[in-house]
């Protein structure tokens, strides 16, 4: 008797469990895993537009698997792609460094502000998230244009006589990226720093540290996880950025997202675009794996 009720109960609970896990899982597999497998497969195909030449065929009792590495070989040998990947990484790294340089003191001073002001300060950092990212990037076009606000202002003051070209250069690209990604650096740093026990700094001072030394020896090491989290949040998406290099970057600022886009929309080379995408995922996966390993290590320490 009791065994029966238990089994019925388990099944009834199981029904809910399967729905809760199964429905989102199915959705993810259909709209994420399978599409990516399609990309992976297409990346090994030839450039014949939108058709899907089968990679496997079964003739004469033998399973033939054809893998065409042509796209990857081209990727590896063509200087343009190597350069593009490198320059994507370079811009992402510069962006991350600058965001950290500006964002760390920013988050630190936010935390040191009066408690009553902190919610407002925090809201002001996250507010831009709610307005269109595209429009905010566009705003820099108006600011940095040859006939834009900054050039106009500088000429009106008389510092320069001819407009400086700022738009469509590495400079405007970096400004746009830092501007877009700065909140992503500040928020994790803030939530890390705000948890820090201020008495630790007092203890350090009591033991003979000056304020700068205490900052360097106590605050910075303790906020390591915040620094890492913020850096990942900035670095990873900026590698594959498309909108900012398109609107603000110069013709020679190669970014991988933009190359993929052009490969796809301008050259109509879908297999090539797929290979670029697969390589890009691998490029992004590397720091993530390192990060995860690091996290599980430090997690074990505590």
């Amino acid at each position: 008797m009791s065994a029966v009720t238990r089994i019925v109960g388990d099944l009834r609970q199981g029904w809910g469990r399967y729905t809760v896990i199964g429905v989102p899982y199915l959705f993810l597999i259909v709209l994420f895993t399978i599409p990516f497998l399609v990309v992976l497969r297409l990346s090994f195909s030839q450039a014949d537009g939108a058709s899907f030449a089968d990679l496997t065929s079964y003739t004469d009792g033998i399973l033939h698997i054809q893998i065409k590495l042509a796209n990857y070989i081209y990727l590896a040998t063509d200087d343009l792609y190597a350069e593009t990947y490198l320059s994507s990484l370079k811009f992402a790294a510069i962006n991350t460094g600058l965001c950290l340089f500006i964002g760390y003191p920013f988050a630190y001073f936010m935390v040191r502000s009066p408690v009553s002001m902190r919610p407002a300060l925090l809201m002001l950092v996250s507010l831009p998230f709610w307005t269109s990212f595209l429009l905010r990037v566009y705003a820099w076009q108006g600011l940095l244009d040859d006939e834009g606000i900054i050039n106009g202002l500088l000429m009106w003051v008389g510092i320069i006589e001819e407009p400086i070209q700022m738009l469509r250069t590495s400079f405007s690209l970096i400004v746009g990226m830092v501007y877009t990604y700065l909140p992503f650096m500040i928020l994790p740093l803030y939530s890390n720093l705000v948890k820090m026990d201020m008495r630790l700094l007092e203890a350090a001072k009591d033991l003979g540290c000056g304020p700068l030394k205490a900052f360097w020896l106590i605050t910075v090491p303790l906020s390591k996880n915040g620094i890492i989290a913020g850096s990942m949040l900035v670095f990873i998406p900026s590698v594959g950025e498309y909108v900012i290099p398109t609107l603000l970057g110069g013709p020679d600022n190669l970014m991988i997202g933009r190359v993929l886009w052009d490969e796809f929309f301008a050259n109509n080379d879908w297999p090539m675009a797929s290979s670029v995408a697969v390589t890009m995922v691998l490029l992004i996966l590397a720091p993530l794996v390192i990060f995860n390993r690091y996290q599980s290590q430090t997690g074990g320490d505590r």
Partner: peptide, 27 residues
């Protein structure tokens, strides 16, 4: 795997999400 899948859209660049979904729909 589920959690990796769930977090993937947060880190995968939009160009890749867009490309893969498009190719999937075409398929």
């Amino acid at each position: 795997t589920f959690s990796a899948h769930l977090n993937a859209p947060l880190v995968v660049p939009e160009v890749i999400t867009g490309l893969s979904l498009l190719l999937f729909f075409v398929m």
